[in-house]
Every structure is written in C-alpha cells, then in structure tokens.
C-alpha cells in the first residue's frame, strides 16, 4: 500500500491550462484588435468576474454567505476618489492602495461579523454595508449624499494619449480579474484550501480535526475584502461618478454577483466564469426591455435554483466528469 501518490492535474485540466494561456494572451492584446466600446465592456465583464469569483470563495468555499460585499466595492470606490482628488495619487496606484485599505478595515470588522452564524451573518454583512453607506453620506468633502464626479483631469492624467489611456485602464481590469482568479485557485490548492473544504462541509467536525476555523475564516474574509475594494476602485474609475446609493448598491454589486455565481455554479472555479458570460449575454441582448429584463433575470435565477441547484457548470461537470481547474486531489494507486 505504500506506493500511492496524490494526483491533481488531469488531462482536461492540462488542456484547459493551455487554452487559458492562449485566451489570456489574446485578451492582453485586446487593445489592438477590439474597439473602444468592446474594451470598456470587457473591463466591466472583468470587474464582475472578479466580484463573482471572490464572492464564490466566501460563500461557496468558506461558507460565509455575505450579502454585503457592496460595502467593500463602495469603500474602494470612495478610497479611489479621496486618494485621486485630495492627495493627487495616480489613479492606477490608488486602486492598489484602495485594496490594501479595504483589507485593513476588514480586520476589525471580521471579528464582529463572525459572532453571527448563517442567516444572521448574511444580515449582519448587509447591515455593515448600510452603515458604510450612511457614513459616507455624511462626508461632505466627498459630496455627502449628493455624490461627486471624478475631475476629467484625473482620468486624462493617466496618459495623455487616449489609446494608451484606455489600454492601461483595460489592462488594469484584466489584471484584477486574473489576480482574483489566481488568488482563489492558488488558495484552494494550498493547505488552507483543504481546511476551507472541510470547514464548508462541517464546521464542528473540522474543528475537532484541529483546523483553526477562526484564523482561516479571517484570512479569507480579509483578503476577499481587499481584492473586492480594489475591484470597486476600478469600477468607479470607469463610472467617473460616485454617490452613496450607487457605491453601496446591493442590486448592482451583490444581487447581480450572486445571480452570476448561482447560475454558473456555486463552489466551483468555473461557475463564476460561465455565470459572468451568461449574465452579460442576457444583459447585452435584453436590457432594453426595461422591467421585463429584470423579471427575466429573476425567472432564470429561480429556474436554475429549482432545476439545477449546482448551476450550469454543475450540470456539465456531472455529465462529463470534467474538472478544468486542478483543485481536487485524487489518490492514485500504481496498477
């Protein structure tokens, strides 16, 4: 029995890695083959991909179902505005600083939220986001309840040439999405990843096996908060305007994100990617229908939850047995 080994990559996963690299190369070169509008849309897609991947890490792998991630999106957005407008920090650098600030502010918040379990935790995160919204509505330097616009000079200051500027903003979005995905994949392949899987399945059982539940959750929550804040900063660099209601919008930054993760497949790496593509396909084709569009989104979500609780990727994986991202460990015995 001594000769077993642990295998993680499969043939499909190796093929996927190759395809992913090719896709990534094509995306890096997008400023040369895509139009301005496409770049902007891709930027938005990447930010939603990052938000959905991060939310999926919290809810799908750590069991922290948060409906308050808009707290960090908005915080990151406001941090960008404050840094760029008052301190004259270069906007792209400000995105990084906003991410660090988001992680720092999550450190004292996490212990408070972790005292709540399950549904109470979900409500607690939402309350936190509302506290953020109301607090930023009181900061008159940032426009209070009225909101503020990013001066055009801040954006044009990124680079004087429009092509370079738009390419740089686009690459930032791509970098954020890749960073979020890479972070989640690497984390899940690590020791912490094993702990997370155990944690998700049973908190009590994993604690009795000696897993430091509290420390693991804290690490995940704080790093997700940081990356979400950086994504938020990028989102509002594209929007150019921030107001408390827009920054801490539960619909835009949490409901849509949950929709993406749910239809794609919670608890899988592939789910949020597929979900993001489906969400944007629906939006680009149906958004002009007004309220009908939102009703269709709702109907799709209900249908998927009832008929395919594991999402679109769940169905595919079940039928084909594919695992594109090598996270699972398989014990292989020599024949």
């Amino acid at each position: 029995m001594a000769g077993f080994s642990i295998q993680r990559s499969t043939r499909t996963s190796r093929a996927t890695a190759l395809v992913a690299l090719l896709v990534l190369a094509a995306l890096v070169a997008a400023p040369w083959w895509a139009g301005r509008a496409d770049l902007r849309l891709l930027g938005e897609i990447f930010s939603f991909l990052a938000l959905a991947t991060l939310w999926n890490l919290l809810a799908g792998y750590t069991g922290l179902v948060s409906v308050g991630q808009q707290a960090y999106v908005g915080f990151g957005g406001y941090a960008l505005f404050a840094l760029a407008m008052f301190l004259g920090v270069h906007p792209l650098l400000a995105i990084v600083i906003a991410g660090i600030a988001g992680a720092l502010i999550a450190i004292p918040i996490a212990p408070l939220l972790f005292r709540l379990q399950g549904a109470y935790f979900a409500i607690g995160t939402w309350v936190l986001a509302e506290v953020f919204r109301l607090s930023f509505a009181q900061v008159s330097a940032l426009g209070g309840g009225s909101g503020a616009s990013l001066p055009a000079g801040v954006v044009t200051g990124i680079a004087s040439e429009r092509f370079v500027r738009e390419a740089m903003i686009y690459w930032t979005a791509l970098a954020i999405a890749v960073a979020a995905l890479a972070f989640v994949i690497l984390l899940l392949r690590s020791r912490t990843g094993l702990a997370l899987t155990a944690l998700r399945d049973s908190e009590i059982a994993s604690e009795s096996l000696g897993i430091g539940i509290w420390r693991t959750k804290l690490a995940v929550y704080v790093s997700v908060a940081g990356l979400t804040s950086a994504t938020g900063a990028f989102i509002f660099l594209q929007k150019l305007r921030i107001s408390p209601d827009a920054a801490f919008s539960v619909n835009d930054w949490t409901a849509y994100v949950i929709f993406i993760a749910v239809i794609g497949g919670i608890g899988t790496i592939e789910g949020p990617i597929i979900g993001t593509i489906l969400f944007f396909l629906l939006r680009e084709t149906l958004a002009d229908l007004g309220t009908t569009y939102l009703m269709i989104l709702g109907a799709v979500a209900i249908l998927v939850m009832l008929r395919a609780p594991k999402g679109v990727w769940g169905i595919i994986a079940e039928r084909t047995g594919w695992s594109l991202v090598p996270i699972r460990r398989r014990v292989v015995f020599p024949q």
């Binding site: 139009g35 301005r36 509008a37 902007r40 594209q238 929007k239 107001s243 827009a246 835009d252």
Partner: peptide
C-alpha cells in the same frame, strides 16, 4: 434611447456605450 433604470451606475454605463459603441 437608453434606460438608466433610475440608477446612476447604469446611466454612466449606457452613456459610455452610446459614446463608444
């Protein structure tokens, strides 16, 4: 014609789409 859905986020998005696309 584009609908802002009474949401400043969406208004910015559709405006930029009208300009760029």
């Amino acid at each position: 014609v584009r609908d802002s859905q009474s949401n400043p986020n969406r208004a910015a998005e559709v405006a930029s789409e009208l300009i760029l696309k």
